[in-house]
Design a protein around this nucleic acid. Structure first.
Lengths: 211, 211
DNA sequence: TGGTTGACTGACCGCTCGTTCAGCGCGGTG
DNA sequence: CACCGCGCTGAACGAGCGGTCAGTCAACCA
């Protein structure tokens, strides 16, 4: 089952084109990323891309799928640990933070894709292909929350809404960190998110110091 | 100081072109919205737009400024009320919810603008013109939070980060409501956000029922 | 009512983009 | 050495964009 030379070359090309696509889309955004620039970034001619991908749409789609697979693997690993609810939640947020700071460029691709709009057919296509990927992330976290609710650790709230709120809120902070010149330690932002979600921001009246 | 007939006509044109721009950008997204389609939507010829706006960029910019002014006015009104911190926070989230459900299309424009990427010069331009608008919203909420912290009602956390987390999390839920076929009552989602932010999701151990 | 104006139009232009394909060079074969 | 086969190239193409401007005509004056 060893790979032939041709297969190795093929895989190398596909991979380096995808990596170039991530970098260019991250830099310029989905709409402004041209095939020409992706080709230059990958060190091949424009035509070469079309030997490995049917068209621009397929390139973007396949690239996204490859990259998000890695993210999901990391997040699953973080969540499937056997700690307490709090530990698992903290692990999830931490994993998300570290993945995106290791892969800043992918993060922007992730966002570009989510927010891309276009013709009606493009929108339908995107809904079919990409939405399920995001939905899957929400659903997994929602599952974790539901579990904690059933165990009586967490108040009974709509788990899907909570998951959405938490993930999007975190993403906003990750995004902010990316453009921050001197962001605080990663753990500090993780703690802010986790403690806010778990215990809220209010100081109970019984614990307030007299002003 | 009464308006001349020409001024009235001029204002009407400007306004209807801007409204058309909002609708088209909302539908197709920033990149895919063409001058041709905006013109058709407004019921004028493409060239007419250029009598009222220097170029596409100015149209988008002016349109955005006009629209976001309304949003800020609403949110300020909600926050400047003289209630308790909790009441003002609830009012803010509620105002955001109702504004965006009354102006679904503007909401999508808002998002399109935030996520637009492009050439280096476009990015710089956008940073100058649009980022401050978003920043202003964050800053206002951050001010409210800071006030509550100084009063000892809220734990001392980075107010800017908290504001970002809250606003983006809420926006995600608003967005979800827009595509939901049968979303829960607005007040229900507002309550979820406010109570989560204030008190967290955890049930204190002392109050847990035995399983 | 004939003349003048200027708001409006839409065919047109230059340009950029995704996509194609005739041809190039190179490693293997007889 | 001549001859392919094939991965690759990049000039060329057509579609579609933002922006232009010569032409149109209803409204208004003299």
């Amino acid at each position: 089952m060893t790979k032939s030379k041709e297969e190795v070359v093929q895989e190398f090309r596909v991979q380096s084109i995808q990596e170039a696509a991530i970098r260019v889309i991250s830099r310029k955004g989905m709409a402004a990323a041209t095939m020409q620039e992706i080709a230059e970034e990958a060190g091949v001619a424009k035509g070469t891309i079309y030997l490995y991908f049917r068209d621009r749409e397929e390139l973007v789609e396949k690239t996204f799928e490859t990259a998000i697979g890695q993210l999901h693997a990391r997040l699953d690993a973080a969540m499937d640990g056997s700690g307490s609810f709090e530990e698992r939640l903290r692990a999830l947020v931490t994993a998300q933070f570290s993945f995106f700071s290791e892969n800043r460029e992918f993060f922007r691709l992730y966002h570009s894709l989510r927010m891309t709009q276009g013709s009606a057919s493009q929108q339908r296509r995107q809904k079919r292909n990409c939405q399920p990927q995001f939905r899957a992330r929400i659903d997994r976290l929602a599952g974790l929350l539901k579990q904690a609710m059933d165990a009586g650790e967490v108040r009974p709230l709509d788990p899907a809404r909570l998951a959405l709120f938490l993930i999007e809120g975190s993403i906003a902070i990750v995004l902010e960190r990316l453009t921050d010149d001197a962001p605080p330690a990663e753990s500090e932002d993780v703690e802010l998110i986790v403690s806010t979600m778990l215990n809220g921001i209010v100081i109970p009246k019984s614990k307030r110091s007299t002003h």
